[in-house]
């Protein structure tokens, strides 16, 4: 067996699936307050029933172990990630960026800390590099606790609305014939 590996995260040409598969993924540990904001947002979107009839859209609570999401990444053409992000703004600030702009650290002999972008390297077979759109939220508190910080709770409805708008736009864009 020959291993084929590749660098990806930015999207590499057309989408294999038509219409493209869109994965809406929440990342983080919900026992660490704002670290779990991505999981909370994605769960709320799903609870509100969006895209329930659209079989090309999947919600996923990826949590903390990216390797367990490998089959979802394989399925996806577009990955919309919601996660806590330290980008230097005030707590509660929301950021939009893409997979090419995010640090993906080197592996030092262990996959315990493999991140989502790093996990892409491990998909065998022909190159598969979904496009990553990331909605980051600047955390206020990352301490032990199951609730978001007051600051993020206050912003939560707006963050969910924003996430929905991004998701709707991705679903719309991917439903028209010309890929982004």
């Amino acid at each position: 067996m020959t291993a084929v590996f590749h660098r990806s995260g930015a999207g590499c040409g057309g989408y294999p699936s038509n219409p493209p598969h869109i994965l809406i993924a929440g990342i983080g540990n919900e026992l660490l307050m704002d670290d779990g904001v991505g999981v909370c947002v994605v769960r709320e979107l799903q609870r509100q029933g969006h895209f329930a009839e659209n079989e090309h859209v999947m919600f996923a609570e990826i949590g903390t172990f990216a390797l367990d999401a490998l089959h979802l990444l394989e399925w996806a053409d577009v990955v919309f990630v919601v996660d806590a992000m330290r980008a230097g703004g005030p707590p509660g600030e929301a950021y939009l960026t893409t997979g090419t702009e995010i640090e993906s650290g080197p592996l030092r002999g262990s996959l315990h800390h493999l991140d989502l972008l790093g996990a892409l390297h491990l998909i065998p077979g022909p190159p598969h590099c979904p496009r990553f759109i990331i909605l980051g939220v600047e955390p206020a508190r990352m301490e032990f606790g199951m609730e978001l910080s007051p600051r993020l709770q206050e912003r939560f409805p707006e963050i969910v609305e924003l996430a929905l708008e991004v998701a709707q736009s991705l679903v719309y864009e991917s439903s028209v014939p010309t890929p982004l």
Binding site: N29, T64, D83, A87, E103, R155, E158
Partner: peptide, 23 residues
């Protein structure tokens, strides 16, 4: 596997989003 916060690269293209406005 506690903290999995993302960090942008230095000089990254990251856009701060105004709340309430569309993407």
């Amino acid at each position: 596997c506690a903290v999995h916060v993302m960090r942008p690269k230095k000089e990254a293209q990251v856009f701060t989003v105004a709340m309430g406005s569309g993407p």
